[in-house]
């Protein structure tokens, strides 16, 4: 950790820092302003009948839904979705990375699997939904499998690509000391790809959520995805809107959690 030294700043530096700060504040102010204006306009438009609040809902009614959270079980549904997403995410990340390691280990297997991976990657996994439900049963298991199906191949491709892009000169250097394949992996290839791993985790957390929502649409038992489908069917659009907003907050929080983990890991590696 570098100690903060506060020398007397030159006038130019102070001016620069001040302009920088003001610029950041302006951006933030505008961002918040747009949100406030949008919500305000939505509310007013609904009240004066410019838009049909039955279809588009309206901020005050969405707020009501949140306030009645205890009755409509919103919290439980959030919990279910978060749990399923994290399970699918962890399974996808671990299985995908392990598969990528195995394929890196055996160039033959890697070559053989190439066309299969390409096809599986471009296949819309949601199409497998009915099959997954038949095999895994219409429940949490099917939903997690759905999340896994969506994130797994991407992880394998992403990680394997990263492993193959490892600077060959580093590997050659390790070979001059007689490094084994395991040593090359653990001491060169894996540390070289820590950032690849985090990038793939960031993509994965979003994909798992997509898988879980799609799974909940199909299984229709619990979770935000279920709530959205249910709300749509009984024309409770407030519930749909409330769920969609929560969903985006959940997605953003999960992404930020991975980013934070990445920052902590990277700063540990670089300044331990």
């Amino acid at each position: 950790m570098s100690r903060k030294i506060t020398p007397t700043l030159s006038p130019q530096r102070r001016l620069y820092l001040k302009t920088e700060k003001r610029r950041r504040q302006r951006v933030l102010f505008t961002q918040i302003g747009i949100l406030v204006l949008f919500i305000g306009w939505w509310e007013i438009a609904a009240r004066v009948g410019l838009i049909d609040s039955f279809i588009f809902s309206q901020p005050s009614r969405i707020l009501d839904t949140y306030l009645n959270m205890a009755q409509n079980g919103l919290l439980t549904h959030i919990g279910v979705t978060v749990f399923e997403t994290l399970t699918g995410f962890l399974l996808g990340a671990v299985t995908g990375t392990v598969l990528a390691v195995l394929l890196w280990w055996s160039p033959f297997a890697s070559k053989v699997s190439e066309p299969y991976l390409v096809v599986l990657n471009s296949l819309p996994k949601i199409a497998l939904g009915p099959i997954i439900i038949i095999i895994a049963g219409a429940g949490t298991r099917a939903i997690v499998v759905m999340a896994l199906a969506i994130s797994l191949i991407v992880t394998v491709l992403e990680m394997l690509g990263g492993f193959h892009r490892t600077d060959p000169e580093f590997i050659r250097m390790a070979e001059t000391f007689g490094a084994s394949r395991a040593q090359i992996f653990f001491k060169i290839v894996f540390p070289y790809n820590v950032s690849t791993l985090f990038n793939s985790l960031k993509i994965n957390i979003g994909l798992s959520l997509v898988g879980v929502i799609a799974g909940e649409f199909l299984v229709s038992k619990a979770g935000l995805g279920y709530l959205i489908v249910y709300g749509g069917q009984v024309f409770k659009l407030d519930l749909v809107m409330a769920s969609v907003i929560i969903l985006s907050v959940v997605a953003a929080l999960m992404y930020e959690a991975v980013s934070l983990l990445q920052k902590l890991t990277v700063s540990r590696i670089e300044h331990s």
Partner: peptide
Amino acid sequence: IGYMLQKDNLLEWRTIRQNVLFGLEIR
């Protein structure tokens, strides 16, 4: 045999001392 390549190939996630000990570690 010690073989030194054109590029220094110091591993950027290791300190200088950890880099210097790399060959011993491998062996």
